[in-house]
Design a protein around this nucleic acid. Structure first.
Lengths: 114, 114
DNA sequence: TCTTTCCTATAGATTATCTATGTATAAGCT
DNA sequence: AGCTTATACATAGATAATCTATAGGAAAGA
């Protein structure tokens, strides 16, 4: 999911991809390619979502009922699948974000210990 | 690696286990059981390192030359394998911590975006 | 003697991610 | 017309770290 902009190929922090996708979709319906672009830009290109990670992840989100999908036309005049958060997806984002923070803070406590 | 103290079974943030182990060993030589305890306590029991994750991880660290191991007697009078950071391991910790921070901050930028 | 705590370890399953690949259309350039 | 680039979706198969479950054993204390 994450790829060093360098050569180091670090696929770090799996498990956060779904959270990032859900968060991105809070801005409104978006297609996969757009989601990847948004995350890339917003993270200053540190986070680069691979297609092989993204599309399977979107399928999982669909299956879980956290997003719905609809084929539409993009401003570029292409067919694209727009994903939209469901109410369940919104709740899930809250849960995942809280859990993520809990763990990040726990890791920080260890990493900052003398 | 991580286990909710509740029931939610969240095995979050794989990839950070090695970093936590290396960091813990900065305090001095320690055996596996002690490492798990230290991380558990320091993280207020949020991070619970499973044996099935820890020992394979320690094997990997040995293979990579980031730690050395030595059988010794514990204060409790038990046989235990004490692991110790190598200079290479110290360097690796710096690298991993820097990379971890880079990614955590990138994720934070996405999660804090409007 | 029984139970708890301490301590190590591995086999096998799970699962998310990555790599590689394939398809296809729009737009812009020459 | 032909070429390239950017856009856009998707899947198959490999990889690898983690989890689950299990095994063993020794010390200490009840």
């Amino acid at each position: 999911m994450v790829k060093d902009q360098g050569q180091t190929r670090s696929e770090l922090l799996p498990g956060t991809l779904e959270m990032l996708v859900l968060k991105t979709l809070m801005r409104g319906p978006m297609h996969g390619y757009g989601i990847a672009q948004y995350v890339g830009q917003t993270s200053d290109e540190v986070l680069q979502i691979e297609e092989g990670s993204l599309y399977p992840a979107l399928q999982r989100l669909l299956l879980k009922g956290w997003v719905t999908a609809e084929w539409r036309q993009t401003p570029n005049n292409r067919r694209a699948r727009y994903y939209q958060l469901t109410p369940l997806g919104r709740k899930q984002l809250v849960v995942e974000a809280a859990n993520y923070n809990r763990i990040i803070e726990a890791i920080a406590r260890v990493m900052q210990s003398a």
